[in-house]
């Protein structure tokens, strides 16, 4: 393998990790000032802040590895929909508080084992970011799992909303475990785990949490996919329109 190939693979991988954090972080930030309780408002904003911080690390690595003179801000604000590599799950609209929480939980339960696996990456830069982020994400998972149980096993109304959230979001979870050529290259080079290798840990966590929450995962489901190669749902464009407006209208604006 040439020296150039792994660095482009690292850049592409960092983009996938960073875009997940950026889009989910942005979605959570949409709740700021609107959450059902002050404590939850603060928790959502804190989680968003962690994710945006992690975005800076991952996109910073993507820039360094691709070596094209772009900055993390350039990647966040100047790419169009087809340039984004996040999972479809994280760009799904917030819906009600229950759906936002369920989306967070389904992601966290994947994110933490992914980061734990990445701590053993052959690329020290990846391992270092994963070590840092995993400590924060452990708190995200603790919170989201706890609330999924409280609301799932809560009132008739909260249970119905949480079950509706599972049914709506489930088709977007399969994408987390599908491998493509890039994943195979990364796994072969010891840079990142094979996506499918994370499925057992995720399923075990979700089964345990859903059992406590009295929620049921759909038995049959079609896996929606495409986000990781730039084919997105219509929702991402609306996120970018809001997030990128300032830099598009006033290029290079700073404060």
């Amino acid at each position: 393998m040439s020296a150039a190939a792994p660095s482009q693979a690292v850049a592409a991988f960092a983009l996938r990790m960073g875009d997940n954090c950026l889009i989910l972080g942005h979605r959570n930030s949409e709740w700021c000032g609107h959450a059902p309780a002050l404590e939850e408002d603060i928790a959502l904003a804190n989680t968003a802040l962690d994710l945006i911080g992690q975005t800076q690390l991952w996109l910073g690595l993507a820039c360094e590895a691709e070596d094209k003179g772009r900055s993390a801000d350039d990647l966040a604000f100047l790419r169009d929909v087809s340039g984004y590599r996040n999972l479809l799950l994280v760009e799904q609209p917030n819906g009600d508080f229950g759906r936002t929480l369920m989306r967070q939980y389904l992601f966290d339960a994947w994110h933490l084992p992914m980061l734990k696996a990445l701590m053993g990456s052959a690329d020290k830069r990846i391992a270092d970011i994963a070590e840092k982020a995993s400590k924060e994400v452990a708190y995200h998972l603790e919170r989201s799992a706890d609330l999924v149980v409280r609301l799932g096993d809560g009132t008739k109304e909260s249970h119905a909303r949480m079950q509706a959230a599972v049914d709506f979001l489930w088709p977007y979870t399969g994408e987390m475990f599908l491998a493509d050529a890039l994943d195979e290259e990364l796994a072969a080079a010891g840079l990142a785990p094979e996506p499918g290798s994370l499925k057992a840990a995720w399923q075990e966590h979700v089964s345990r949490t859903f059992a406590a929450a009295t929620l049921k995962a759909p038995e049959k489901s079609f896996a929606q996919k495409g986000g990781r190669r730039g084919v997105h749902s219509e929702h991402l464009g609306y996120i970018l329109a809001e997030m990128q407006f300032l830099q598009r209208a006033y290029p290079g604006a700073r404060w």
């Binding site: 404590e39 939850e40 603060i42 928790a43 804190n46 989680t47 962690d50 708190y139 603790e142 919170r143």
Partner: peptide, 13 residues
Amino acid sequence: RISQFGSTPCKAH
């Protein structure tokens, strides 16, 4: 504990 997330990321409420 009221919330695991407090006034800053490093604090709980």
